Measured scan of single mutants.
Amino acid sequence: ASVAVIAAGTQGNIFATSALRSMRFLQILRMVRMDRRGGTWKLLGSVVYAHSKELITAWYIGFLVLIFASFLVYLAEKDANSDFSSYADSLWWGTITLTTIGYGDKTPHTWLGRVLAAGFALLGISFFALPAGILGSGFALKVQEQHRQKHFEKRRMPAANLIQAAWRLYSTDMSRAYLTATWYYYDSILPSFRELALLFEHVQRARNGGLRPLEVRRAPVPDGAPSRYPPVATCHRPGSTSFCPGESSRMGIKDRIRMGSSQRRTGPSKQHLAPPTMPTSPSSEQVGEATSPTKVQKSWSFNDRTRFRASLRLKPRTSAEDAPSEEVAEEKSYQCELTVDDIMPAVKTVIRSIRILKFLVAKRKFKETLRPYDVKDVIEQYSAGHLDMLGRIKSLQTRVDQIVGRGPGDRKAREKGDKGPSDAEVVDEISMMGRVVKVEKQVQSIEHKLDLLLGFYSRCLRSGTSASLGAVQVPLFDPDITSDYHSPVDHEDISVSAQTLSISRSVSTNMD
């Protein structure tokens, strides 16, 4: 405001104040949320940038038409019409005319000016109207692209899951042992070998009828009888010197917790746990005396209480009078009846079946994303299906024409109403129809010849004498029936064969 007042002088105070007050009108834009329509302006900018070359070309040609039209109309009207006294007036008329506004304040009066105005109007309006069409088509394409992008975003994750499931299904095939990355992934998420051994031990116990592997080994086996189970490696608790092959000598807290839970599941009659010990102070733990958990001091820290809870689970003690015997301790020893080589084939089979199920689920979810969402998608899918159906029908028609023997030239002739090819031409065609016709002709010829021969033979049998045999009239074959199959017997006289037959029969009768 200060700059405006200084620039306008003393009389500019009122002007500056009114100008600043008129800017209050811009507050109405906040009512229509114009300040939060950044996406709309961004869309407009992207459309203009995408079609910038077309817009520049249309505007450039339109500007050239405007300059030439205004100049030529000015030359034609400057002497006869006072409205075109300057080139600026003519340029104003050209702008209003070519933009199809047409105020009518300035019009050419001479015939030359009117002809020039009409010609440049028809030429220039087309170029001035091009930017509107370019922007409209650009907006339509952009909206369609955003629509497809939205659908693509919805299909991206199911497609990625389907590709991942397909690759993992491919890589978990037993015949592709060189693909090891997927197996490394499952090695990292699978439970430890100790848990798998416990699982298979329970399965084997159920197969043995509820007997433990130790009891199965204690059962008497006759001499020479084959053992029911192959000899396997035996594993004891981590306190002993022997372990399962492939295990580490260090046992983690999870393994100890699972070991304690498995020992508690063996039965309360074979294992008696004394009350857990509780320390009397955060600094020292008295293991010899058993106290109640309700006497825990409230001033303990979080670490002390955590250690106390761990001691409740991981440090059970047995009383002296209830101490288990050596046999019970041997039964409680952890027996590992299986090795990694025995378990891994079954584990890989389970993983393979899981990968198949996940692949089928991913495939079903991806197919669900291909379903249409709204009416536009339904129409688009219907149009695509219609085009596909037309293509299939056209391909089927082409194959039928190839089989029947109607080529493209014959199809055009039928469409024009011309006469089709004759039967002889159809026979000569190298097509399925021509071959079928040729075979039918040959079969008819053979059938006719057989009928003639059978009739001749029956007449010979009825006559009974050589004289009557020679008097029999043998009809000749019709050459038209034989089609294109020409037998060497067709052109010979059958009477010669009949005479030869009669001579042979007379000779045979004389010999008798």
Rank of each mutant, 00 (worst) to 15 (best):
Y170C: 08
S171P: 01
T172S: 04
R176G: 08
Y178C: 12
Y178N: 06
Y184N: 09
Y186N: 12
D187A: 09
S188T: 11
P191R: 13
R194G: 12
E195Q: 12
F200V: 07
F200S: 12
E201V: 10
P213T: 13
R218Q: 13
G224R: 09
P226T: 15
S227A: 14
S227F: 11
P231R: 08
S242Y: 01
C244G: 11
E247D: 08
I257S: 11
P268L: 13
S269Y: 12
K270M: 12
T277I: 03
P282S: 10
S284N: 10
E285V: 14
S292R: 08
K295N: 15
S299I: 15
W300S: 03
W300C: 06
T306A: 15
T306P: 10
S311P: 12
S311A: 04
A320P: 15
D322E: 15
S325L: 09
Q335H: 05
T339A: 12
V340E: 11
I343S: 14
M344V: 10
P345H: 01
T349S: 14
I356M: 12
L357R: 01
F359C: 05
L360Q: 01
A362G: 05
K365E: 10
R371P: 02
Y373D: 02
S383T: 02
G385C: 13
L387R: 12
D388Y: 14
L390Q: 03
G391V: 09
R392G: 01
K394T: 00
L396M: 12
T398P: 05
R399W: 06
V400M: 11
D401H: 15
Q402L: 14
V404G: 07
G405D: 02
P408A: 05
K412Q: 04
E415G: 09
E415K: 15
K416E: 02
P421T: 15
D428V: 11
D428E: 11
E429V: 06
S431G: 09
M433T: 06
V437A: 07
S445Y: 12
I446F: 01
H448N: 08
K449E: 03
D451V: 07
L452V: 10
G464R: 07
A467G: 09
L469R: 07
G470V: 10
V472G: 10
Q473H: 03
V474G: 14
P475Q: 06
L476Q: 10
L476R: 07
I481V: 05
S483T: 04
D490G: 09
D493Y: 13
Q499L: 04
V507A: 04
V507F: 04
N510T: 11
M511K: 12
